[in-house]
Design a protein around this nucleic acid. Sequence first.
DNA 1: TCAAAAGTGTTAATTCTACACCCATGT
DNA 2: ACATGGGTGTAGAATTAACACTTTTGA
Lengths: 233, 233
Amino acid sequence: MTQTNQKAFHEYQNPSLAVDLVVFGYHDNTLSVLLLNRKEEPFKDCWTLPGGFLQMDETFLDTCSRILRTKLGMDGVFVEQLYSFDALNRDPRGRVIAVGYYALINPAKFQVVAGSMANDVKWFNVRKLPAMGFDHKSIFQLALQRLQSKIQYDPVGFELLDELFTITELHELYECILHITIDRRNFRRKILDAAYVINTGMKREGLKNRHPELYRFNKQLKKHSFQISIPAE
Amino acid sequence: MTQTNQKAFHEYQNPSLAVDLVVFGYHDNTLSVLLLNRKEEPFKDCWTLPGGFLQMDETFLDTCSRILRTKLGMDGVFVEQLYSFDALNRDPRGRVIAVGYYALINPAKFQVVAGSMANDVKWFNVRKLPAMGFDHKSIFQLALQRLQSKIQYDPVGFELLDELFTITELHELYECILHITIDRRNFRRKILDAAYVINTGMKREGLKNRHPELYRFNKQLKKHSFQISIPAE
DNA sequence: TCAAAAGTGTTAATTCTACACCCATGT
DNA sequence: ACATGGGTGTAGAATTAACACTTTTGA
């Protein structure tokens, strides 16, 4: 942070600073990302991550909130910093540094989802993504990797589920995110042993088979850790 | 990355972008960080992380290299991005975003170390740090955490050691970084089983006890993973 | 009474932990 | 021959993986 030459502090030319968001949603046993169809050049009509420029009086989180609120109609969402992207030519308009964040949301809580905003907003299955503008594909890929490792030691899964959920639903979420098969019974034991969830005593009614118990996340628990066995394909 | 209002691209006011470096070195069974004594306001005469402003034609890594070369006389060093720091008031001069990087170096390779530069540069034991300017203490703390977790799944230890080293030296490095005691014999087995290192057949000569075998890192190996047992104190 | 998913238990294999013992070297 | 680390082995504990069986529900 030492200044190395004699120019006054504000005479330096600075790159623009954008925040780009990888918004993950989970629904119908599918992990999806929210993409925006750009209306302006560059990358007009291309799918891109939602993003925006940092204002001078905003923190990154402020910018995230603003994007989520104004462009996607979402509020009170889990976001976490991912990485900063600095390739010289990543934006044809000039030098733009992007700070990537990822968000985890439960699409059920935001009707917005289905594209109710003026912008063309759409959920895409993370395994079936379209071409994307800028370097957004690689931002997304890093975010998915991050989510995959994070979920193995940090209880963030609940951000994607309803308040109450069954072990099977949690199990499916893990299989979907990690894209592997996990033994149902071993998974259950690990989750319960880790005190990851709390049994509410309630049951999910109205199924045509046995009514599973409903759990909620144990918010006391900060970190957990269980090995997920990755079977040979 | 969508632009939300009508101003021309370059009319936006942007924060300054600094790169701050947490340079780790390992020597004499001590993990140290390199700090600079600032000659200018703000935080004149305070210890700070080496850093500098991003130039318009530089990537973050370019800036890192420039800082390492010009301020510390180092070259060809391992660096990796840590996190970006955005508190509104983190720099009294104005809005400055800092992108934190950490570097791992073998102090034996750079005589610079002992403070040969014009600037007042000094190694500090990571467990005995002075007060630091800006938010550099928290940048450092995050870097140490990152190093501690990284070393458990990524073979980065070799950046801190000589080309050839003994298992005992590697063992001491791990104990020092993680700040725990690790069973010598179990550590050896895990390292060897993970194919983390390659036996060179050579031995370290001139010791007053048995001459230990010299190893080098297995550069093929991308990731490994072994659990380090953390004994109750 | 059947299908389908939920819940519980068990065994064998694997991995870890906590050690003990021998080896090579300089003094 | 002895003090000082270096190198190797092993038994018991703990954890994990791969299973089979029973239970609850709606149709």
